[in-house]
Computed example of a mutant assay.
Amino acid sequence: MEALPQLAERLGREGEAGRFMGAVLVARGDEILFRQAYGVADVATGAPLTVSSRFRLASISKQFTAAAILKLQDDGKLSIGDPVCRWIQPCPEAWAPLKIHHLISHTSGIPDLMARPAWGLRRVTPATLHELTEDSKLYRLSFVPGDKVRYNNAGFNLAADIVEKASGMPFGAYLQTALFQPLGMADTGLEEAADHGIVTGHANFPAGLTAQRDPNVSIVAGAGALYSTLDDMLVWQRALHGGRVLSPYSYAQMIMDHSPADQPNERGGRPHRDWGYGLMANRLGQRVTPGFQDYEIYHTGSWSGFRNLATWQPEARVAVIVLSNNYHQQPQVLLISQQAMAEALGHAFPTGLDRN
């Protein structure tokens, strides 16, 4: 008997009609409730997606960079309270108040990549972590560190540079050694020059479904350059939230809210989200109808033809992972994730998004 019949019926219909392409996994406790893939891995070949397909994680990658920093903290190599200027030399005078904490909580005040002049050129030009660090040094802080929260990729690139300096290893190699290999995550890694067998990203254009073949993830090395699969992401969710990656102290720091006390509410008057280290938390079920109130720890991802959402409900230990290789499926990805979460928790099955 199908464990999530309503989700299975809807996804079968949406996939058959071409309205959803991607892979979905739902687990509760130690049980996998749902695991399916829909659509094509590459529109040019028509090859189908499978449950083992490798997807670009985009900004879901941020939690791995944060976990690497916290793992180094647990090993006594650094502290999130360290001044950034301890690790980045020469260091701009304006960065004197900056702590590693600010980089991984979106509170640094460093202007983000997309907010800088010539972003269009930077977007398509490969870069090393050192070059990205040097780029960030060119700009004044847009606010006093810690005074505001503003979504920021540049901070995570700087954090990845610090991981290299503190570990004495290339960023990707440290992630493999400290995180992925111990957990058996053989299908997860930093996308570099090699062919990693990642599916193609797509976008919906007037001419139809169009492949996006120039991801240039080098410019988001610490913020969005990892790839993974449904199964590896489930391993990660269970290990991270089950206490097998970080010390209790570092994990508590990772999921607590680091946004200022005067952070405004979300659109529609909903309570503001918690800004953790590479993770966020909120009651995402308030964004669908009929809604539900369960607390979820999550992160989204969007880059070069991909839209993703990975959520974790801690009390029931429900993991929902939705990976799509179509950039324009953001509403679908959100709705599917919350339909899956609702049905796994025994709530009424949502029929649409709450647009308030």
Rank of each mutant, 00 (worst) to 15 (best):
100 I>H: 04
118 A>D: 15
184 G>T: 11
129 L>K: 07
181 Q>I: 07
95 W>H: 10
160 A>C: 11
106 H>W: 04
54 R>M: 04
77 K>I: 01
178 A>G: 05
178 A>W: 05
89 Q>S: 15
77 K>N: 09
84 V>K: 02
99 K>M: 13
103 L>P: 04
55 F>M: 10
67 A>I: 07
136 S>N: 14
103 L>N: 03
115 A>R: 05
103 L>D: 02
73 Q>H: 11
79 S>L: 12
103 L>F: 11
125 T>G: 08
148 K>W: 12
128 T>F: 03
166 A>Q: 06
114 M>S: 12
193 A>E: 15
67 A>K: 03
101 H>I: 00
89 Q>M: 12
78 L>C: 11
160 A>R: 02
166 A>R: 02
132 L>H: 01
192 E>I: 00
163 V>W: 02
118 A>P: 01
188 T>K: 08
158 L>I: 15
144 V>N: 07
173 A>G: 05
153 N>I: 05
130 H>C: 10
144 V>M: 11
87 W>N: 13
101 H>M: 02
71 K>E: 14
184 G>H: 12
162 I>S: 03
136 S>W: 13
150 R>H: 11
144 V>K: 12
82 D>W: 07
123 R>H: 13
116 R>M: 06
78 L>N: 08
151 Y>F: 13
162 I>C: 04
158 L>G: 07
122 R>E: 14
156 F>R: 01
166 A>W: 03
72 L>M: 05
154 A>T: 15
115 A>M: 11
150 R>Q: 14
154 A>G: 04
112 D>Q: 00
167 S>G: 04
114 M>F: 10
76 G>F: 08
142 S>G: 11
156 F>D: 00
132 L>N: 01
127 A>W: 07
73 Q>Y: 05
115 A>L: 10
178 A>E: 09
135 D>Y: 05
70 L>E: 10
